Simulated scan of single mutants.
Amino acid sequence: MVPTLSSHQPRLSVSAISISAPKLSILLSQGTVHKKTQHLELILSLCNTSPQLMDTMRKQKEEFIFRSKLPDIDIPKDLPLHSYVFENFSKYPSKPCLINGANGDIYTYADVELTARRVASGLNKVLHTEVPSLLLPNPFSTPAELAKQARASKSKLLITQACYYDKVKDYAQENDVKVVCVDSAPDDQCLHFSELTQADENDMPRPEFSPDDVVALPYSSGTTGLPKGVMLTHKGLITSVAQQVDGDNPNLYFHSGDVILCVLPMFHIYALNSIMLCGLRAGAAILIMPKFEVGYLLGLIEKYKVSVAPVVPPVMLAIARSPDLDKA
């Protein structure tokens, strides 16, 4: 008599009972033995573990794969993140790409690609293979937190604004770290951003990379706790963006005709990934608002005909409760 196998039955030793591989194969094919993975150890304790038995186990193991009726999304495996995001830029070189809500400056897709390549070339000359850090803007970080992040990431260049220079000045001087300010250089120890943007965009070697290399290290508290670095790879971010805007049924319906509002801080992954990278991939215009203020936001939405406004609940509540809403 073959004992009934269940997850509650005590484990039996091989010396207590033995079932041959052919007999077990018959039992499995007839469904007499429960075929869940968690029972394999118990089954093996009742049987002679021969290669024939193991082959039977593999064949009987069930797989449940749920597939969409839509075609698979093509996710490139041999492109670095910037090449993937820039892939469609040539389709709309004169189309607005980034709009500075603070001063009205508009940068086309051709402008953005050229500047990005020049900055990459400039960074290559200054850093080679070292790590740069961005502090643009994050008024909540303390000097101690920024020093900890720069030390953990082994950053050799800090890119920030003049108003945050004092937060990183001491750490930079004590650790031989360069600082670049994107607006104005407070002293001669700080480099101006033009030293990067004036580099030759053609003087940039093709970098060697692996899809599993870390491309971004945003620091996030994960809602609670102290900030910690989140290692994001080329493959991971490309896959995330592709799932959101590529394919026949994307999660985000961004189109090249959209004007997308970016009022959320870009040190948060929501703005960096789902607004900036996805918007660039889709060819949309991205309206950047450096600081949230309800009346100003409503004016920008009307002026630039914003079609998509990704926000978080507190921002939506502030808009809904604002008396400026009736004036818009």
Rank of each mutant, 00 (worst) to 15 (best):
K228E: 02
S50G: 02
T4F: 15
R206G: 02
C262A: 15
C97R: 07
G31K: 06
N48H: 11
S153K: 09
P323Q: 06
D166F: 05
N88T: 12
V14D: 09
C47W: 10
V306H: 01
A242V: 04
I319D: 01
L272N: 03
I73W: 07
I319G: 03
Y171L: 10
L134I: 14
L46S: 03
K77T: 15
L12C: 10
P218D: 02
Q38H: 14
G295T: 02
M289W: 02
Q9L: 15
N88V: 03
A162R: 10
K169C: 08
Y270C: 09
A150Y: 01
K36A: 14
D166K: 13
A120E: 00
Q243A: 14
G299W: 07
L237N: 02
S13R: 14
D326W: 15
L146P: 05
C97I: 08
S220M: 10
Y171W: 14
S307K: 07
T197N: 00
N100M: 12
Q244D: 04
C163N: 12
N251L: 15
G104C: 12
E293T: 06
L12M: 14
Q149T: 02
N103C: 13
V215G: 01
Y296S: 12
I286K: 08
H234L: 05
Y84R: 10
C163F: 14
A152C: 08
T4C: 10
I17A: 13
Q244W: 04
D105M: 11
A116P: 01
V85M: 10
